[in-house]
């Protein structure tokens, strides 16, 4: 079963994201810090990474770099409370698959996970 790494430190948002992942027929692995995310990526493959860039201690460029080094590239979906145009531009230029502002629509997220094609 394809796995999804969820990087989110807000328990409520994590629950919403987790449910969306399950609804899409994928398996969520949830972490709440940047360090845990890096540990996970060094040991595991996943099809998607759902990330809130504002999580404390998160080095998003490093996460992206690790995600791209996999034999099967993980697709990055950003789900964030920061709705500024500048940060969206910066994130998109890093090569993410999709960008959502909280509160994220779990139906929309499920659609992204069901039909968005991770490499």
């Amino acid at each position: 079963m394809r796995r999804v790494l969820v990087i989110e430190d807000d328990p409520k948002d994590m629950a919403i994201t987790r449910n969306a992942v399950l609804r899409a027929g994928l398996f969520p692995d949830c972490v709440a810090t940047g360090e845990e995310a890096l540990s996970y990526l060094l040991r595991n493959d996943c099809a998607y990474i759902l990330v809130e860039p504002c999580v404390k201690g998160l080095n998003l460029p490093l996460i992206l770099s690790l995600a791209n080094k996999r034999d099967r590239k993980a697709a990055i979906v950003v789900i964030t409370k920061d709705s500024s145009l500048t940060s969206e531009r910066k994130l998109r230029e890093m090569g993410i698959l999709y960008y959502m502002v909280k509160p994220a629509d779990d139906m929309e997220l499920s659609m992204v996970l069901q039909n968005g094609k991770a490499d």
């Binding site: 697709a75 698959l97 999709y98 929309e108 659609m111 992204v112 039909n115 968005g116 094609k117």
Partner: peptide, 8 residues
């Protein structure tokens, strides 16, 4: 365009 379905 190949990475997302039509409605998305």
């Amino acid at each position: 365009c190949g990475a997302l379905q039509e409605s998305l």
